[in-house]
């Protein structure tokens, strides 16, 4: 079984820890507690391409990605960039942030995820997708659990394959 490191990053309060907790412990906490430094968790994922031990680093949110210590991104196989679909300020820097993440780790696969899907309507999501010039890989809700398993399973399958 392979082991891979995956990073959850994005602005503060977008739901990185909620996605982390939902995926690893199948839990959701309504209370907002800011992440200090890093939280590391592990989940074994069974994919059609083989099993994967996914080491997930949930790092403290920053308004801009160049504020995150570069060393956290070293040796990572995948980055999940998360934004909050209900707060435009969390995807305002999307283009710059993705360009920065690609520049520091050229070989890493980056997924863009819009979280808190439960707070907006389908029509609003469509408008948002049109507004953002880059494609969003998935819209999730850590609260309801919608698309959370799919996000990590798809990513794991891609990494093992």
């Amino acid at each position: 079984m392979l082991s891979k490191k995956v990073i959850l990053t994005g602005s503060f309060g977008v739901g990185k820890t909620s996605l982390f907790e939902r995926f690893i412990n199948n839990k959701f906490e309504n209370k907002y507690l800011t992440t200090i430094g890093v939280k590391v968790g592990k989940k074994l994922v069974n994919t059609p391409n083989g099993d994967l031990s996914m080491m997930i680093w949930d790092i403290a949110g920053e308004v801009a990605q160049n504020k995150v210590p570069t060393s956290y991104f070293l040796g990572t196989s995948g980055i999940i960039y998360i934004f909050d679909v209900s707060r435009p300020s969390t995807y305002g820097n999307l283009v710059e942030d993705l360009a920065y993440l690609k520049s520091i780790n050229k070989l890493t696969t980056i997924k863009v995820v819009g979280n808190k899907k439960d707070l907006v309507t389908e029509a609003e999501l469509k408008t948002l997708q049109e507004k953002i010039s880059l494609p969003v890989n998935l819209f999730t809700s850590a609260k309801t659990g919608e698309n959370v398993e799919k996000l990590f399973l798809d990513f794991a399958t891609e990494m093992v394959g």
């Binding site: 082991s3 891979k4 490191k5 430094g37 890093v38 590391v40 968790g41 592990k42 031990s53 080491m55 680093w57 060393s71 956290y72 070293l74 040796g75 990572t76 196989s77």
Partner: peptide, 26 residues
């Protein structure tokens, strides 16, 4: 760089050693 565990030894089995390796690296 990744903090992935390459191997470990413990006199007494403790919490997840992969997570310890990750946290130590962090």
């Amino acid at each position: 760089e990744s903090g992935l565990l390459l191997g470990s030894y413990a006199k007494e089995k403790n919490t997840d050693q992969d997570v310890i390796a990750g946290m130590l690296t962090a």
